[in-house]
Amino acid sequence: MTLHLTQISLTHANGVQALRGVDLHIGAREQVAIIGPSGAGKSSLLNLLATALRPGDGELQVLGERAWQLSAGQRQRLRARIGLIHQSPPLPPRQRVVTAVLAGKLGQWGLGKSLLNLLYPLDIPGARAALARLDLSDKLFTQCQQLSGGQLQRVGIARVLYQAPEVLLADEPVSAMDPVLAKHTLSVLCSHAREHNVTLVASLHAVELALAHFSRIIGLRDGQILFDLPASAVDRELLDTLYANEQLERSPPPPAHLSVQIPRC
């Protein structure tokens, strides 16, 4: 078992209960899509699997280790084996794409390599190869702030592909892309997972994409698992229950804008 959740509950600092008593088992090399209305807890669940959030209750096992019973150093070593694709990748606006991608391996590199890479990108071919799979190899030396939202998402994906983790978690990885690109990007993710024996868990708000690319679908609503079925068994009726009374989708928060104050006297 790669991911093993037993009776997990999670309450955010603002008092919102994001997950209630979730039981979930995902085996090695499985490809799972999580769908559900906004605010159902999809992001919370993925952040929890990535050990970014600590569950209030229950037990989380990732890659056979109890993540929150490890020492801080052991947990960092575990985290180097987990890759999380963020919905809006938190990349420094002035960082070059090549550095942002190479930063994926910081958890695995030693002191000297990390330091040298800060001065000069050490593995340009590696970064180029990761970007080439997503049709972005021409943007290798561009600054992140010059990219569009969809391009930035692909840089975030390239970084995780370069990290080469054993568990790949993706939080709405294609939300800012057009349908054709979204389809292509998802198939890149799935084939990468197949080729490298990686467990893939992705949350998606486009149901058709989830059904087309993933074999196992988990429906999440109000912090609880509504259904956990193979893609072929998911029908219209189930989806209607899942998305019943969905409020208008909240737009994602705008990316943080960086401003430089230059003192004048």
Binding site: A50, I82, P92, G104, Q163
Partner: peptide, 28 residues
């Protein structure tokens, strides 16, 4: 967020600062 993301990939605090915080901070 950029520094947190690097911590989440297993990078230590120094590299999170150098790769996540410093690029935003340096011009200022």
């Amino acid at each position: 967020e950029p520094a947190d993301a690097i911590r989440l990939q297993g990078g230590n605090a120094v590299w999170a600062f150098c790769y996540g915080t410093l690029p935003n901070l340096l011009p200022q």
